[in-house]
Design a protein around this nucleic acid. Sequence first.
DNA 1: CGTAGGCTTGATTCTTGTCAACCGCGGTGG
DNA 2: CCACCGCGGTTGACAAGAATCAAGCCTACG
Lengths: 270, 270
Amino acid sequence: MQTFPAVPLAALREARNNANPLVRKLSHFIGLSLVEQRLIEELTSTDEVVAADVDISVEGVAPRGVFMLREGMAVRYRTLPNGGRQIMTFLIPGDLCDVHVFLLQQADHSIGTVIPSRIAAIPRDRVMQITARYPRIGASFLWSAQQEESMLRERIVSLGRRDARGRIAHLLCELLWRYSAIGRTPDEMFRLPLTQTELADTLGLTPVHVNRVLKEFRGSRLIAMENRTLRLLDINGLQEMAGFDSSYLHLNGASMELTRYLAGLEASAS
Amino acid sequence: MQTFPAVPLAALREARNNANPLVRKLSHFIGLSLVEQRLIEELTSTDEVVAADVDISVEGVAPRGVFMLREGMAVRYRTLPNGGRQIMTFLIPGDLCDVHVFLLQQADHSIGTVIPSRIAAIPRDRVMQITARYPRIGASFLWSAQQEESMLRERIVSLGRRDARGRIAHLLCELLWRYSAIGRTPDEMFRLPLTQTELADTLGLTPVHVNRVLKEFRGSRLIAMENRTLRLLDINGLQEMAGFDSSYLHLNGASMELTRYLAGLEASAS
DNA sequence: CGTAGGCTTGATTCTTGTCAACCGCGGTGG
DNA sequence: CCACCGCGGTTGACAAGAATCAAGCCTACG
């Protein structure tokens, strides 16, 4: 991570330990000042409880506003004419939903919780105001969208060119990295609240086959599961099996050049 | 498509017949004024010839500037440790490349031509200026990015939940719709300059299997191929086989509400 | 005229899907 | 308090879709 005079180290440390998962996530891209952190916290300050298996946004209807997932887990998915469904993405705490979807007449997929969750509804015009006024926040939101898109591409690679083992291993590694980016992976362990059917719908497999592969992973001591909590025992083994390369997550910060450019914008805006 | 007083019908007609494929594509989202059309044409006025099988942007290095594909065809792809490759997207004329990638330190995938092509390099600061000054152009670029993302999700659905026939049929339908959106499909026919290996690398199949399915399609008179030009003989049959629903391409225009909102911005900007 | 890349085809293998049954647990209602 | 129910996980037997291996063919091109 590049530090730059514009943001003091103390602010950086603060961001990395911030209780707000969005601030933590964004801090992997750019150092946010304390003011910027407060603004993001305020932007995502509402708190709404959503039960498990509830659709927040549904295919075919005009998307409702922007929101951030605060706690829990949600999936983007699409149901097919033949009854099947495909999960495209997992939303974990700190994930923003579709800052730009308002451009579309209707959502082309649904978003639904898989476990009880909490979301922060974000008024669209506040987003507009803040991103216009604070270019670094705007840039970090765009970065977040780029990261999501990159994850979509990586899923395409998984589905197209990895076998069942590789797909599952890759997904587990991805989740570990993402949880770790928001500071929620003590001991390479995280809660995996997904049913095997949900995993199958994500990975283009059947629940039966997912079960068999997980069993194999447990047998070869790659993972361990105790009451819905997953522990990755052999991360290197999993990463190798998956051909996992974390660079697609872009967690290594903005370039010096961009950081400087944004600092310039910041200065001229205020 | 919603017409709105801000843009006269003549301009709409002009956009729909514009020689610039980007203008044509964007006109499916929003009616661009003649001035806006001229600006986009000017923005994409440079012309650079690129041979077949040349990488325009390569994985691991900082992305070069924005460009538009003017003629030909390119693919986004990633090569895997084991030597395989996965194509994620096709770029056809009018496709913009990564208005926002400059945020990333390094590209997570490569972009390369598959046939001789022509591209228009676009200076990033001109994009910034124009999108800031002309919100409708800015919005249409964002729409274009949303559309691309939507195509990524649809590919995930294909790879995850459609069999070989469905995947191929879906891809052909998608290309037909996209070519038709830029006015290049006389008689449901278009040039398909891809080798079967490239198709396989897109669809998560082997070249051999792609060959067999195409043979079957020809046999059942779904398609016909004569010297590298493909004709879809039975579009309904293909769409049904694929479970194809074009709404993910979002070609049906912006909502009235958004159109009005952008007109407002336009007015206040000038 | 020779060659390489791409297309075509057949024989065979194997990964994954399908079908079916059973288990165990948590919730619910009698 | 207990029987019932349903969902999710587990396992086995079998089927099928796609991969693999291998060879021949055509054509554009040097």
